[in-house]
């Protein structure tokens, strides 16, 4: 059993274990910290910045920052919410997110976060970048229009599948996901790979199963993302 570490989050004392990240420890205590590039079971990435919290007044990504004794974390505050809203809106305008025909709609974590934050339209102008689609593989396709560069596929392929199917190439706004070959079909990607299930948006999807669950009955259609974590929170006063 790891050593217990007490810290504060939004004015509430929380107990975590030494070595845990703020995001993990908060989650166990029923405090949801919004996130996109983080996925349980993968090493943290710290790239989307959606999990940014104020730690003793300084911004830090909750997924990469370990808890420490007496740390004061600000998660649910207007300024943190505003930052997260801005980041989510940035991701929307930087890609081509056509939710109305995306198979992932309703199960998409980016969309779900926008719902959770009550975003009706981004304040930033849409960029409409030109992006490539790779449908070469028989069972999986990549639609880079929807990619938010969270790197979950990169890490899942390396850390869980023991492969190296995906990697980032380019830099700045030209950064994109590439595959280990000319096209996805040239790689050893398989539909059973963890990487095929790792994408939070509709950028990497399995073929042929898009509408097994109808729109309206999907994960985030009725309840906000993070509700499962928040359900673990002990009732006030108990």
């Amino acid at each position: 059993m790891s050593q217990s570490v007490m810290f504060m989050i939004d004015g509430v004392q929380v107990e975590g274990r030494a070595g845990q990240s703020i995001l993990e420890a908060a989650g166990e205590a029923g405090v949801y910290i919004p996130r996109l590039c983080y996925k349980e079971g993968l090493s943290p990435h710290g790239s989307c910045r959606v999990c940014t919290v104020m730690v003793n007044g300084r911004p830090m990504s909750a997924c990469t920052s370990p808890i420490s004794l007496g740390m004061i974390v600000e998660n649910d505050s207007p300024r943190v919410a505003q930052l997260r809203r801005d980041l989510i809106e940035m991701l929307f305008v930087a890609g081509n997110h056509f939710c109305m025909f995306c198979e992932k709609s309703g199960d998409c974590e980016l969309q779900a976060l926008a719902y959770r934050f009550g975003i009706t339209a981004p304040k930033y102008p849409y960029m409409f970048p030109k992006r490539e689609v790779d449908a070469s593989h028989p069972d999986i396709f990549i639609d880079r229009n929807r990619c938010i560069l969270c790197g979950r596929c990169v890490r899942a392929s390396k850390e869980l599948d023991g492969k190296n199917v995906f990697q980032f190439v380019g830099r700045s706004a030209e950064k994109r996901i590439a595959v280990n070959g000319e096209a996805l079909a040239d790689t050893d990607a398989a539909v059973t790979d963890a990487a095929a299930d790792a994408c939070p948006v509709g950028a990497i999807l399995k073929k042929g199963v898009g509408y097994v669950v109808p729109v309206g009955k999907r994960e985030y259609d009725d309840k906000p993302i993070g509700s499962d974590i928040e359900a673990k929170r002990p009732a006030a006063g108990s």
Binding site: F98, M100, A121, Y126
Partner: peptide, 18 residues
């Protein structure tokens, strides 16, 4: 009021934007 995705973000017609 912008009503619907097309008014809000261009929608299906905006597929031509790339």
């Amino acid at each position: 009021i912008s009503v619907g995705d097309c008014a809000t973000m261009g929608g299906i017609p905006a597929l031509r934007n790339t």
